[in-house]
């Protein structure tokens, strides 16, 4: 198990390095920030001076080496737009994103898995078909549309919940729902099909022939066997919910990393883009590492491979 863990950890570090290269290059592909910083009537000499102040006149590989050197010391550069360290800028909005992403993740895990098990056990009943209808809507409806519908219903018509900002717990409800619904749908559908498959396995029949109770068969044996694909998809959902809440954050005016990144991209604020993307990718790689570890814990065949 320890060997298994270190191998996965090594793979995660390689991934982080790869991501840093991509983030660095892609940010530069988005355009030249000097044009936005300089006044409209700037001379070519002035532009060249700004470039050399920012280090943009050096070859790109040298820029990357400098970037890595600084990052290793915790320095992600300074935001061109805010004139603040990029890292502290991103860290200041990270809690808002984590709060929203993690609550949506917990919600979709619990609801998705529970309903997935229920629909598998009640296959072809009205509960099953009803919930599968919800799944189709959840997967088909874009989150911005869903967010606006929720605002229309709960904020405008019923006036139960606030529609924007991050002041209280009540402010979390609508964005969490808008963010979680598609995840609930994905997790539910996958849990259902994985449960259907394991429930028809031979060892389930043998368990029944041992006189085991239905609840023990379902919750101890079937769910654990079905959990392997579910864990894989939960890992994807975790990184999606933390890194990909851009649209929902925008709709609900939620002050998170997603919104900051959109603004930074528009301003070609390289340092912020890099810091934000790297930080989010840390969570993605971390989520994948967690998934790998859970696989090992759940399945002895993976542990002993």
């Amino acid at each position: 198990m320890l060997f298994y863990f270190f191998r996965r950890l090594g793979r995660a570090l390689v991934t982080i390095v790869g991501i840093s290269v991509i983030v660095f290059v892609v940010a530069r592909l988005s355009g030249d920030p000097t044009l936005q910083l300089a006044p409209e009537d700037a001379t070519p000499e002035e532009l060249a001076q700004i470039r050399s102040e920012l280090g943009l006149d050096k070859p790109i590989w040298m820029q990357y080496v400098v970037f890595v050197e600084h990052v290793a010391q915790g320095d992600f550069g300074t935001s061109i737009r805010y004139q603040q360290p990029a890292l502290s800028l991103v860290l200041s909005v990270l809690p808002a994103t984590l709060q929203l992403g993690l609550s949506a993740f917990v919600l979709s895990t619990i609801v998705g898995v529970l309903l997935g098990v229920v629909t598998a056990l009640k296959r072809d009943t009205w509960i099953d078909s009803g919930l599968r209808g919800v799944v189709v809507v959840g997967q088909a409806a874009p989150s911005f549309w869903l967010g606006m519908m929720l605002i229309l219903l709960f904020s405008v018509e019923l006036q139960w919940l606030p529609s924007s900002g991050r002041m209280s717990l009540a402010h979390m409800v609508l964005p969490t729902m808008a963010l979680a619904l598609s995840s609930v749908a994905v997790v539910l559908r996958l849990t259902r099909s994985a449960m259907l498959e394991t429930m028809s396995a031979d060892y389930i029949r043998f368990l029944r022939s041992k006189g085991m109770s239905k609840s023990l068969i379902v919750w101890k044996h079937a769910l654990r066997n079905a959990s392997i694909p579910v864990i894989a998809v939960l890992g994807l959902q975790l990184s999606y919910l933390i890194g990909g809440a851009v649209i929902v954050e925008t709709v609900f005016n939620w002050p998170g990393v997603g919104r900051l990144m959109v603004e930074a991209l528009n301003a070609r604020d390289f340092a912020v883009i890099q810091a934000g993307a790297l930080l989010v990718s840390f969570f993605t790689v971390g989520a994948n590492l967690l998934v790998d570890l859970l696989f090992g814990l759940v399945d002895p065949r993976i542990r002993y491979e």
């Binding site: 060892y203 029944r208 041992k210 654990r224």
Partner: peptide, 21 residues
């Protein structure tokens, strides 16, 4: 109550009769 206690069964393929986990 009877299954596994008074009446038991052995199935064809032992490689899949036991829960792998």
């Amino acid at each position: 109550e009877l299954r596994g206690a008074k009446i038991s069964m052995i199935f064809q393929d032992p490689m899949v009769a036991l829960d792998p986990l």
